[in-house]
């Protein structure tokens, strides 16, 4: 009789079924879509989205939004690439850590604005979105860091394999595991749910909204830091426009995963499946002869449709609940 888990599970199962149907349909048009190699490629392509979407998930869970993720990815990716370019001898692990640290700092600044400046998340991150993007240009002086300026070690960071899976996939798995643990088995993780569910009640039991905001924006920033390093090393290029518009995809993954856009409800497994769903679509577009220029439109459409369905389902559930009451 575990109703909430049941519902969550139901939603996740629906999503898994949807993902499977989609895959089968694409495979009908383009046989060979479902192959071990291609699937592994799709997961690889989606790993960055999964990590950043998990950060976005925590922010949305509190009823906020982080529009600056794309810009943080760009800045930390650029910074890490330039560090690698100027100090080729520096261990790659250290470069990665610097990237994460930079992301963390930028995210924490967002948190500071929201927690102590009382700036609504949408405005704070809309502002820092352009500030961090501008910083990227200032840092790079408008230049790119290209493949021949990066070290082999840097470019191999996401590509190296372990037990048959790429490091990038491992990073996503590790991040997912740690974050699922955080969201389910730590007090701070549950406090995020508390703030999203009922701020007044959270205050009564001593949950600090400021602390939660600092925490979630820092997490989101740090995950963007990882993503920035992985992005630039994987594509062997750090450009100023990296990850422009990526915030939409992260929100899309959350919404598809059943996270309530108004806060309070949702879980990470849903977000991961939501991200994979988007990954499959992005990979399937060229396969079924759609120009990649359609990607933007289709993503917008999917997000809107998903929110629409979520809302309708919520309304129906509420009605059922009311009808079930003693009257």
């Amino acid at each position: 009789m575990n109703t909430i888990k049941e519902l969550m599970k139901k939603r996740e199962i629906t999503l898994v079924l949807l993902v499977l149907t989609l895959t089968v349909l694409v495979n009908l048009r383009a046989p060979g879509f479902v192959s071990g190699e291609n699937i592994s490629r799709i997961i690889n392509d989606t790993s960055i989205l999964i990590m950043v979407a998990i950060g976005q998930f925590f922010v949305i869970l509190t009823g906020g939004i982080d529009l600056s993720v794309g810009s943080i990815i760009a800045f930390s990716g650029m910074a890490a690439s330039m560090l690698n370019q100027s100090n080729p001898a520096l261990p790659v692990g250290l470069v990665l850590m610097v990237g994460v640290l930079i992301g963390l700092v930028l995210g924490a600044f967002n948190g500071l604005l929201v927690a102590f400046g009382k700036v609504p998340p949408i405005i704070a991150t809309l502002g820092t979105m352009s500030i961090y993007r501008g910083f990227t240009f200032v840092l790079s002086k408008g230049q790119w860091v290209t493949a021949h300026e990066m070290t082999e070690g840097y470019m191999n960071l996401p590509k190296g394999t372990f037990l048959g899976l790429s490091n990038l996939i491992w990073a996503a798995v590790l991040v997912s595991a740690v974050m699922i643990f955080f969201s389910r088995y730590t007090r701070s993780g549950r406090e995020v749910y508390a703030i999203g569910g009922n701020k007044t009640a959270a205050h009564f039991v001593g949950v600090s909204e400021a602390k939660v905001n600092m925490l979630i924006f820092s997490i989101s920033g740090a995950l963007c830091g990882i993503a920035g390093v992985m992005w630039t090393s994987r594509y062997a290029a750090a450009v100023n426009e990296t990850a422009t518009g990526f915030e939409l995809q992260t929100v899309a993954a959350c919404v598809l995963g059943g996270v309530n856009i108004a806060g309070g409800a949702g879980a990470i497994p849903g977000v991961i499946i939501g991200a994979l769903f988007l990954g499959i679509i992005n990979n399937a577009l060229p396969v079924v002869n759609f120009s990649p220029f359609y990607q933007m439109f289709i993503q917008g459409l999917i997000v809107l449709a998903a929110m629409f369905i979520n809302t309708m389902m919520d309304n129906r559930k509420e009605k059922e609940l009311l009808n079930r009451r003693s009257l």
Partner: peptide, 10 residues
């Protein structure tokens, strides 16, 4: 915010 984020990309 959610609707216009989606519609902007459409």
């Amino acid at each position: 915010i959610a609707v216009t984020l989606a519609s902007l990309s459409m």
